[in-house]
Design a protein around this nucleic acid. Sequence first.
DNA 1: GCATTGACGAAGG
DNA 2: CCCTTCGCCAATG
Length: 118
Amino acid sequence: MKKISANTDRYSFFDDVWAVVRKVPKGRVTTYGAIANYLGTRSSARMVGWAMNAAHQAAPKVPAQRVVNRNGMLSGKAHFETPTRMQELLEKDGVKVVNDTVQDFDRLFWDPAKELML
DNA sequence: GCATTGACGAAGG
DNA sequence: CCCTTCGCCAATG
C-alpha cells in the first residue's frame, strides 16, 4: 500500500483498490469512499469507481459486488455482465438486497481503515 | 488540448 | 430534508 500521487502510482492505485476489495470478507460490504479513505484519497472516491471499472480485466477476479456507494445501493450493477449479476452474487454471499439496496448495511459495512488497521 | 463525463461523497442552500 | 454545487482526477470525444 502506498500513497497515490496521481502520477506513476496510478496503476498501483488500481492494484491497491483490488487488493482491499479482495480482503472484504464474504457476507460483508464496503464503500468506494471507505476504500478511497483507506488509501489516503478520501476525496477521490470516484477514482475507486474507475479502479472497479478496470477491475474487469483484473486477475484474479475482484468481488466488485461487495463495493457499493455510501447508501448501500448497488450503483455499479449496470457494469456487470448483466444488471442482475451484482445482486445475485451478493445474495450468494448471504447479503440481502432489496430494490438495489443492501439490507442491514450499517451492520454489514466493512471499513478497511478500521477492520484492516495495520 | 480543452470540455465532458462518471461504479462517489460531503457540504451548502 | 431534498436538490444543487463542488472537489477529485483519469479517460474519452
